[in-house]
Design a protein around this nucleic acid. Structure first.
Lengths: 206, 206, 206, 206
DNA sequence: CATGAATGAGCTTTCATTCAT
DNA sequence: AATGAATGAAAGCTCATTCAT
């Protein structure tokens, strides 16, 4: 599976990624040193030459997760709906490229595998996304780009719901006629934005 | 913890509920026969007088889950947005009363604990909800009660997103100013319905 | 090796004694759960139904040791040399009956197997014996039953040395002509007492 | 910790001494190749460039021990009590200078760490000391320098007891008023000799 | 029905030892 | 000589499951 005698740094990366993969595809229960070792192509005991114990492996896996999520944050500038659009598009792209990452955010598998501190780290990443979305929407409401009547939280849930829905759909289900899995992230955002702006009813206001 | 010598049927119910509780509050990894026995107040070996093995316990737990979800389905009649409203309200009420149930649906803890067959059952319950929502929305689009432009799937995700958001919020977070956790399910639905109908935007533009 | 299904209390006693036996005859390194299980006649894992972990086993073993030593303490009354004589005789008898016990006191195997707290307990037992001997000898010096010139500590070492010598001799060596292993504890004490009193030179003072 | 690339002979000496140190201060269980490597300041695998396996390391450690003990043997000539005095003084000096050496002799940690052959070697060193003491005392008895009534073995135990006592005292205990740890080896021997000669009693009866 | 001792498989971790670099 | 990655055999411990009482 992998060539022999790699430097620790590389093995650590391999192992952390393998851990993330196992957690997301097979569940926390299957995250065993034996399973990891097999995936990476080394003997069980060797795992612990690269990590002190399983906790540190999960921590490393969480770090990989954090990095992946952190890369999918747009800059904090520009018009609110543009920022939000960039965010949604980036997330939907992430869903396509690395479906396991977002599923882990919405699961609590990762948090379950980790101890308290690790769970908190995962929670913080999730919270950061929610906060980002909420701020964009709040700004947009203030600028009257979207209806100020709808409770902010409801809007947040709807936007996040779209990302979750995409993450889950890519995961288990067969596509349907109008399924958005064939749409580009930009197209999905366009629909969503239309909806938020309330313009979708009016057909782009000719 | 519980009186002695209960008939198997009662013990089975106790155990199944305990299993569901453990899975939802402590995670699959903590679902052990010893933990179950302790929660139920019997000796560990006794668990297996009531269930053949752990798989059957998880199956029974899934059955409890299914029943809880099945009770929260409105009748399949009436106007589409009324049906959908009834559904959303019931789910939000379920979130309030038994928060663990919906969190289990959106997690895959339950599915993870179960084998293939059990995971499929959980999947089917989730799917049934999605289908219900989709059908309501499709009907509503056809009747032009909501915009026919937005892709159906997007609408489904948004509606489901609201339920998920409610489930998660009740779970971990401290309330915010406009948090919907203080709103009644009916109020939440009113906001959501306004949004779907696209009326929320126009109402304020006299 | 032992009949099946014993109550925990009995198994615990068996295991604790087996642990003491293994430590004293084979050394700390051989005190493994497998070795214990084999000696007691049960499976490895079963050990941990009776003790939470190896530390608790060592603690129980130390308790057995403490009890054995504590039984070999004479009452704290009477003339000093009589008290000391009773003590020496009891210890020499203990050497004959349960040679491993005193060897453990003079080793630090037990202390090594235990954690800090356990080591302290062993140390306290040893200290208690030293203190007992010292007090008897101090009293005897005061009453001029033995020479007041010799440093007390020297006398303590000599008395303890006799007990240690007996413990070690019974352990590894083949008997010699004048070996004291054939003498009764009372005879050994008689010689030692004569020596301490300084009368041995004068041939029982006719 | 130590400079790089030493010739094997030096490394072997370092390792053997480190092994002795670990055994005496931390116990056999802590004598691991990793602990040795760390003490010596090399990588763990490197240990086995200098020794074939752990057994050989323990053997080398025993050799260090043997050398240290062998240096503390007086010449086999002169009056018996002088020879014995020289022996006792040398041993007490050894206790002061390298306390771990004699503790190892009275422990069986070293013997435990070693295999059969090594244990026998340690036993032989101990036996050699006992025999030396016994011969001195036997000669002294024959020459009537000490009482011929006391069983020889008892005398041996008492003399050895003093050395052991000194070794143990230096090890764990806080000093007492009359503790001999402040006395010079010569002073201790003077007291012991007086006692053996039986003169300590009469000196004060003018 | 209930208990709890026993089992055996499996998991995490340690450790002596080997060997490519 | 030295390094440190890799190995495989325990060791300590957990857990589902069985079964005598």
């Amino acid at each position: 599976m992998s060539s022999k005698r790699l430097p620790t740094a590389e093995r650590q990366a391999q192992i952390a990624k393998a851990a993330l993969r196992i957690i997301s595809t097979q569940g926390v229960r299957r995250l065993t040193s034996a399973a990891l070792a097999e995936q990476v192509g080394i003997a069980d005991g060797t795992i612990f030459r690269h990590f002190k114990n399983m906790n540190e492996i999960v921590d490393a896996a969480i770090a990989v997760f954090e990095d992946s999520i952190a890369e999918a944050f747009p800059p904090d500038e520009g018009l609110p709906l543009e920022r939000l659009g960039a965010f949604v598009v980036m997330r939907l792209a992430l869903v396509r490229e690395r479906p396991e990452i977002l599923r882990l955010a919405f699961n609590d598998r990762l948090a379950e595998a980790a101890g308290h501190e690790g769970a908190a780290r995962v929670g913080r990443m999730v919270e950061r996304s929610l906060t980002f979305v909420r701020r964009c929407l709040a700004d947009a409401q203030e600028r009257r780009e979207i209806t100020p009547d709808a409770p902010l939280t409801l809007l947040v849930w709807m936007v996040i719901g779209v990302i979750r829905g995409a993450a889950d759909t890519d995961a288990h289900r067969a596509p349907r006629e109008d399924d958005l899995s064939s749409a580009t992230p930009e197209q999905v955002w366009a629909s969503l934005e239309g909806f938020l702006r309330g313009t979708s009813n009016e057909e782009e206001q000719p």
